[in-house]
Computed example of a mutant assay.
Amino acid sequence: MRNILRRMGSYMKIPGLLLIAAASFAFAMFQGGFVSWFLFYTFLPFAVYPIILFFYPMKDFKAERLVSRTECIAGENIEISIRITRRSRFPLCYLLVEEMLPRKLSAGGQSAKAIVFPLFKKEITLHYSFENMIRGEYYLQEIRVRTGDIFGFFEKEESFELRQKLLVLPAYYDLPYRQLENFFDQGLAGTTKKLQRENSVVSGIREYQQGDQLSWINWKATARTNKILTKEFEEQKNHDLFIILDEETSDFFEELVSFTASFAHSVLKKGIQIGFLGTNEEIILPVRGGDIQRKKVLYQLAKAEGGQSAASVRVFDMNKAMLPPNAVLVYITSNLTDASIELLGSYKRNMAAAVFCLKKDPFITEYENRLRHAAFKRGIKVSFMEHSHLEEGLSGVIAQ
Rank of each mutant, 00 (worst) to 15 (best):
A374C: 12
P50A: 02
E391A: 08
L343G: 00
S68R: 11
E247P: 07
G290F: 13
V355H: 09
K296I: 10
L256Y: 02
L344F: 06
A339N: 04
V315Y: 00
G275A: 03
A339P: 01
K193Y: 12
V397D: 13
S129V: 11
F154Y: 12
S312H: 07
L195K: 02
I364V: 09
K381P: 09
V382G: 09
R146V: 03
E79C: 04
R224V: 11
V202L: 07
L301I: 04
V267M: 15
V267N: 15
M351D: 03
E391Y: 08
D212W: 03
C72E: 02
A74V: 06
F25W: 15
G393W: 08
I124W: 05
E76I: 06
E342L: 12
G108T: 07
Q308F: 02
K381C: 14
F43P: 05
G16S: 11
R135M: 05
C357L: 06
F233T: 05
V67C: 10
F27G: 06
E123G: 09
L169M: 10
I78R: 03
P324M: 07
A22S: 15
L268N: 04
T337Q: 05
Y138W: 11
E155C: 02
S10D: 05
L92T: 08
P45L: 11
V287K: 02
R206E: 04
M322A: 00
S10T: 05
I134C: 11
F27P: 06
G290S: 10
R197K: 13
P91N: 06
I73N: 00
Q186C: 12
E71T: 09
H239Q: 15
L241Y: 15
S24Q: 14
I364W: 02
P102L: 03
N280A: 01
F233V: 10
G187L: 13
D149L: 10
L169G: 05
W216E: 12
V287H: 10
E368L: 06
K104L: 11
A114H: 08
E254C: 04
F153K: 09
L5H: 08
F27M: 06
M58S: 03
S346T: 00
H265V: 14
S383L: 14
K62S: 08
Y331G: 00
I143K: 02
V330A: 01
P176S: 13
G275D: 00
I364R: 05
Y177K: 15
K231D: 14
R378C: 07
Y347Q: 03
E281Q: 13
G33L: 06
I292F: 15
P324K: 08
A311S: 10
I82V: 11
V116C: 09
V201I: 13
R314T: 10
G306C: 04
L301A: 02
I380E: 00
N280R: 01
T260G: 02
Q164D: 14
H265Y: 15
L298W: 09
V382R: 03
H127P: 10
L214D: 04
A352E: 09
N326G: 01
G108Y: 15
M100Q: 10
R86S: 08
